[in-house]
Design a protein around this nucleic acid. Structure first.
Length: 359
DNA sequence: TGCATTTGACCCCA
DNA sequence: TGGGGTCAAATGCA
């Protein structure tokens, strides 16, 4: 209980910080493009990075399993961070150019519905029927195990109790990746930023960051998942969002109390907003993103600094899906999407503010 | 034809 | 000795 209170408090603070960051970013990006020099771009990149980390930390508090996964045996990094009261430090992040993501050491187990989407490339090398198991256990090693000597392996075992939909898998990770080549071809959001801008003011290097992001290094994907998940949480939570098109409404969730994938929603609250966020797959997220752009209307850059007591009420005005110009929100997929991220995150926060009440 | 996957055999360990 | 993990030849596919 006390832990939940503390977690909510931390979450509250993290969201407040993200609100401030998004405000700064909006102010920065609202300048005419010709006025945004390389220093300004560096600032925008740095703020966007930090904003991304804040949202990642916040969502991890919502969902300790990270993108629908739960870790057995020990707390995930953000979860542990909450316990230790140092969220930002244990959140997958690059601080002063140093990796702070706790390395995967030894053996780690997860229950996930998507055992093959962890950001790394795996090569299957074996399959074995296990005694008293309905499903065979699959054995994978890192694709770079030979040429780079990466010793990372994983075992995937479909849960016996997961017959039907959605199937759940127990994934056992063995050894740390030493290849650091997750998603080598992915474009990160600052792809169009000049080369001189890849090093931020605090020394964070984007290539370094991309190599070391916790979940496979796909920062853009993570950011999009984060944003979309938040959209779903808000859309599903706020009855005051009648203007949202059905496309943006979360699909119904059939939560089973006995389902190990179900989350403790704090007792009796059902369906949880958090549960609603669990049922987004990437296709839905892409649809949300690329067919409508942001589901929310643009807002003015809010005044900073933000304070706990000064949250503006969120009057969501009706929006027409057809009135949204995707180009205004999505400069390009895989390109420089800072404006979208900042805009969407700020809008998301405006919408979500009534969901969180000060302690 | 090259690469990824499958699958039976082999090895190791409790 | 049996179960789990790995190897490597066979197979499938683009």
């Amino acid at each position: 209980m006390a832990f939940q209170q503390e977690a909510v408090g931390k979450l509250w603070e993290e969201l407040g910080r993200s609100y401030n960051l998004s405000a700064k970013l909006l102010a920065l990006l609202s300048q005419p493009s010709h006025l945004l020099d390389s220093h300004g771009q560096e600032m925008a990149v740095a703020i966007s990075q930090e904003l991304s980390q804040v949202f990642r930390a916040s969502l991890s508090m919502f969902n300790p399993g990270n993108s629908g996964r739960m870790v057995e045996g020990r707390a995930t990094a953000p979860e542990a961070a909450i316990m230790e009261g140092s969220i930002s430090q244990a959140t997958p992040a690059i601080i002063s150019g140093e990796e702070v993501t706790p390395p995967r050491i030894g053996k780690e187990e997860e229950i996930t519905a998507e055992p093959y989407k962890d950001g790394y490339k795996w090569k299957k090398y074996g399959q074995k029927n296990i005694k008293n198991r309905k499903f065979a256990r699959l054995y994978f090693r890192c694709m770079h195990s030979h040429e780079r000597g990466c010793r990372a392996k994983k075992q995937v075992q479909q849960q016996d109790s997961s017959i039907g939909s959605p199937p759940l898998y127990k994934v056992i990770y063995l050894n740390e990746h030493t290849c650091h080549q997750a998603f080598p071809n992915v474009n990160i959001t600052n792809a169009n930023v000049p080369a001189t801008s890849t090093t931020t003011r605090n020394g964070a290097d984007f290539d370094h960051a991309r190599r070391h992001l916790h979940v496979g290094g796909n920062g853009e994907l993570e950011d999009r998942i984060m944003t979309s998940t938040f959209s779903t949480v808000i859309g599903g939570a706020a009855p005051a969002a009648p203007s949202l098109s059905p496309l943006q409404s979360p699909p119904p969730v059939e939560a089973s109390p006995s389902d190990p994938a179900s989350y403790d929603t704090g007792g009796g609250q059902s369906p949880s907003l958090l549960d609603l966020s669990m049922c987004l797959d990437e296709t839905m997220m892409d649809e949300m993103y690329f067919s409508c752009g942001s589901p929310f209307r643009p807002v003015e850059a809010p005044a900073a600094p933000w304070s706990l007591s000064s949250l503006p009420p969120p009057p969501p005005p009706p929006i027409e899906a057809s009135s949204i110009d995707p180009a205004a929100y999505m400069p390009s997929r895989g390109g420089h999407s800072l404006s979208l991220d900042a805009m969407t995150m700020a809008e998301i926060f405006l919408w979500s503010s009534p969901l969180f009440s000060p302690r």
